[in-house]
C-alpha cells in the first residue's frame, strides 16, 4: 500500500494555486501539509481524495492511477473535510450508523467509545457544541475503517484534552500500518511525521 503523487498542478478559476507538487506516503507514515491561507492545502487534499481533478499530474495508489480505478481507491480512503457531514435532525449514533451502513461496515459502538461520545450519542446533533460535532464527525474514521486518512483541519474547535485523544488515535492508526495526510495550522508534535510545505513549493516555482 502506498500513495504517490507526481507534479500536481491546481488551477482554480484561472488562478494557479500550486504547481509541481510531488509527494509519497507509505504505511506507518504521517504527512503534515503546511502552508499559509490560500496556499492550496485544502485543494491538495481534495485532489488526493478524488474530489477535485488536478490540472496536470497524476495520483497513484499501489502503482495504479486513481483515475483508472477510483472505486478501489475510495474503499481505502476516509476523508474528513471542513464541514461536519452530519445531519442535524439525527443523533450522532444515527449519523454514524448511516455511514457505517452505507460503507458496509459495522463498528459504530467502537467509534463512539473511541471519541467518548456515548453519553451524548442519542441527542439530536443540532444541540451539540461545535467540538462535540467535530468529534462525531471524526468518529467516522473508526466507524468506517480505511488505511488512508485524509484530514483537513481535524482538530479545529477541539479543546486540548480531545486534541490529545485524537493524537493518540492517529498515532495508533499509523502504528497499526495505517497512513495519514494532515493539514493543520497547529503543531500536534506528532512522532514519525514528515512535512510538506506548500509555501516553499510556490517559492521555488516562481
Amino acid at each position: 500500500m502506498s500513495l504517490y503523487a507526481q507534479s500536481l498542478t491546481c488551477i482554480r478559476q484561472d488562478r494557479l494555486i500550486f504547481n509541481a507538487v510531488d509527494l509519497s506516503l507509505n504505511p506507518g507514515e504521517i504527512l503534515w501539509v503546511k502552508g499559509r491561507n490560500g496556499s492550496g492545502k485544502t485543494s491538495l487534499l481534495r485532489i488526493l481524495a478524488c474530489l477535485l481533478k488536478p490540472a496536470t499530474g497524476i495520483v497513484s495508489w499501489n502503482g495504479t492511477d486513481i483515475e483508472e480505478d477510483p472505486e478501489h481507491y475510495k474503499e481505502n480512503l476516509q476523508y474528513v473535510g471542513h464541514q461536519d457531514a452530519l445531519k442535524m435532525a439525527m443523533s450522532a449514533r444515527e449519523n454514524l450508523e448511516f455511514w457505517s451502513d452505507y460503507t458496509e461496515n459495522s463498528t459504530v459502538d467502537q467509534a463512539l467509545d473511541a471519541f467518548q461520545l456515548q453519553p451524548i450519542a442519542d441527542h439530536p446533533t443540532q444541540i451539540l457544541s461545535a467540538g462535540q460535532k467535530k468529534r462525531s464527525n471524526l468518529a467516522r474514521l473508526i466507524a468506517c475503517p480505511a488505511p488512508l486518512w485524509i484530514l483537513d483541519e481535524p482538530v479545529s474547535s477541539l479543546d486540548t484534552d480531545y486534541i490529545g485523544l485524537f493524537k493518540d488515535l492517529l498515532e495508533k492508526h499509523v502504528r497499526n500500518g495505517g497512513m495519514a495526510l494532515l493539514a493543520t495550522h497547529q503543531d500536534l508534535s506528532l512522532s514519525r511525521v514528515r512535512q510538506l510545505d506548500l509555501n516553499q513549493i510556490s517559492e521555488v516555482a516562481r
Binding site: T9, D14, L16, N19, A20, A205, R206
Partner: peptide
C-alpha cells in the same frame, strides 16, 4: 511563472 496560462485561451 513556470506555467503558461495562455495556452488555455
Amino acid at each position: 511563472m513556470a506555467i503558461d496560462l495562455h495556452k488555455y485561451a
